[in-house]
Structures are given as structure tokens and as C-alpha cells.
């Protein structure tokens, strides 16, 4: 009866062979193409450094004014602007200004990349429903796979540093924007779509004049989630050499510096709230125009 309690697993040697072969080939790919891959991502690295230099190199009052301006443009509410300015000042007073700027620049670029990648994919997914089902499965895997697992091949291929960290953040953060672009387009009122057809819209006209504008509030909800996930990933990405607030948290864990952990943790929360309130307020403003949607 022993077989009932011991699952008939594959032969141990066989499993070992699989593991060795996969890891071995991945390693040899790295050895063979490591430089090529790194060269391929070199422009990306330059972009990341460029943005980081801009934001960390600017005088702090200017950064506060610009971010407050963005908040005003998006939300048109003084309370949001006040929250942004207050949070930034608090972060600066705690001595975390430089690290916070690095984190903000990473989250910003990761979000921009995710939108640039995710929106077209979402449109594509909506347009080709069958391929869409496959993409859906891939997104499920991306969102549920523990991030540590896909850090491994990224690190193997690219080593540690900005670029692999950035890639890890984008992989983690891009699914919501893809999903919600697709969903937003699907939720567009059927009668309005009929009107677009009845007036002779081409496919492109229908997409850009009707579907995308009407899907915007939903897409903005996706952008909001993407930002939040990117911020959440910052700490994990610090394990592979991303600098900023996440690295401080990692150090605090390793050395049991409770206060450092708390300060940096709150700084991350503060940044999350800024981004969240600003993008949500923007989404709500978009939605207001569409209150008549059934």
C-alpha cells in the first residue's frame, strides 16, 4: 500500500537532467550572447540614467513645483496639490530626498514604458479575440508568478543593475494596463458603436474617435494600478541592484534597523498616495463627462 502515500514522481535522475540542461543552456546563451543582449539594452539604460539625472540633478524647489503643477493639471483640486507638496517636504525632512527621487524616476519611466507597451497590446487583444485568450493566460501567469522567480533569468541574462531591475518592474506592472485597455474598449456602449458604424467610420476612425476616448476612464484605472504595482515592485527590485528607497528597506531588513525601515516604508507609501490620488482624480475628471453612459 505504500504507493498510495508516495506520489509516483518522475525519475529523480530525469528531473535532474532537465534542470541541468535548461540551466546549462540558459547559461551558455548568456555566455554567447551576453554582450549582444547588453548592447541591445544599452539605449534603455541611457534613457533610465537620463531621467534619473534630470530628477536627481534638479534643485529641489523646482521638483516640488513641477510635481505640484502636474497634480494641479490632473486633479484641478487644491487638496491634492497640498497633499503632494506636504508629502514631498516630509520625505525631504527625513533625509530621503535623493533616494525618493531615484524611486520616483524609476516608477515614472516604468509607467511610461508600461503604457507604451500595454495600450497597443490591449487594443490588439481586443481586436483579435482569439489571440487575446492566449495573451490573457500569459498575463495570469505574469501576475501570479512570484516575482523572485522571474528575477532569476533576468539576472542571469543581464546581471544586476538598473536595466534588469527596470525590466522586472515593467513585467510586473504591465498586466493591468493591458487588461483594462481591453476591458475599457469592450465596455463602450453598443449603441454608440452602432452610431459610429452607421456614419461610416473606418476601423481606425472608430477606434480613435469613439472607442479609445470612451475607454479612457477605464484605461486610467489601469494606469493607476500599474503605478501602484511598479511602486510595490521597487523593494523587490532593489535585490538586483535598483537604487532608491527600496534599497534602504532591504538594508534595514538585513541589519534589523527598524526605524530606517519605517521611514523608508512611509516614504514609499507617501509616494504611492501622491501618484494614486493624482491619477485617480484625473480618471474621475475624465469620467464626469461620461456620466450619461448607460
Amino acid at each position: 500500500m505504500e504507493w498510495l502515500f508516495k506520489f509516483p514522481q518522475l525519475d529523480a535522475d530525469f528531473l535532474l537532467t532537465i534542470k541541468r540542461a535548461t540551466d546549462g543552456s540558459l547559461r551558455s546563451i548568456t555566455r554567447l550572447y551576453g554582450d549582444t543582449i547588453e548592447n541591445f539594452f544599452y539605449p534603455l539604460q541611457q534613457v533610465l540614467i537620463f531621467f534619473e539625472d534630470i530628477i536627481t540633478g534638479s534643485p529641489w524647489p523646482l521638483v516640488i513645483v513641477v510635481l505640484a503643477g502636474v497634480a494641479w493639471f490632473a486633479a484641478r483640486r487644491w487638496s491634492v496639490v497640498a497633499a503632494v507638496v506636504g508629502t514631498l517636504i516630509a520625505i525631504g525632512l527625513l533625509g530621503l530626498w535623493q533616494d525618493a527621487m531615484k524611486t520616483i524616476s524609476l516608477v515614472f519611466t516604468a509607467t511610461v514604458f508600461s503604457i507604451a507597451l500595454g495600450m497597443p497590446l490591449g487594443i490588439f487583444m481586443n481586436r483579435f479575440q482569439r489571440v487575446g485568450a492566449v495573451i490573457e493566460t500569459v498575463l495570469d501567469v505574469m501576475q501570479t508568478m512570484p516575482p523572485f522567480v522571474y528575477l532569476i533569468p533576468v539576472v542571469m541574462l543581464l546581471g544586476i543593475g538598473r536595466v534588469p531591475g527596470f525590466i522586472a518592474v515593467v513585467i510586473y506592472a504591465v498586466p493591468p494596463i493591458i487588461r483594462l485597455t481591453d476591458l475599457g474598449i469592450r465596455l463602450v456602449d453598443k449603441e454608440v458603436l452602432e452610431a459610429a458604424d452607421a456614419y461610416g467610420c473606418s476601423r481606425g476612425q472608430k477606434l480613435w474617435k469613439v472607442q479609445m476616448p470612451l475607454a479612457m476612464p477605464t484605461i486610467m484605472a489601469g494606469v493607476n494600478q500599474t503605478i501602484m504595482m511598479a511602486l510595490g515592485m521597487v523593494v523587490i527590485a532593489s535585490m538586483i541592484g535598483v537604487q532608491g528607497l527600496g534599497l534602504n528597506v532591504l538594508q534595514a531588513i538585513a541589519n534589523q534597523y527598524f526605524t530606517q525601515g519605517i521611514f523608508n516604508g512611509f516614504a514609499i507609501v507617501g509616494i504611492a498616495i501622491i501618484f494614486d490620488r493624482t491619477s485617480q482624480a484625473y480618471g474621475r475628471r475624465l469620467q464626469m463627462r461620461q456620466a450619461t453612459r448607460a
Partner: peptide, 8 residues
């Protein structure tokens, strides 16, 4: 019937 105007 339900107008089908573009809200934006």
C-alpha cells in the same frame, strides 16, 4: 432611441 451621442 437612446441618442447614442459621444459623451466626450
Amino acid at each position: 432611441q437612446r441618442f447614442a451621442l459621444l459623451p466626450h
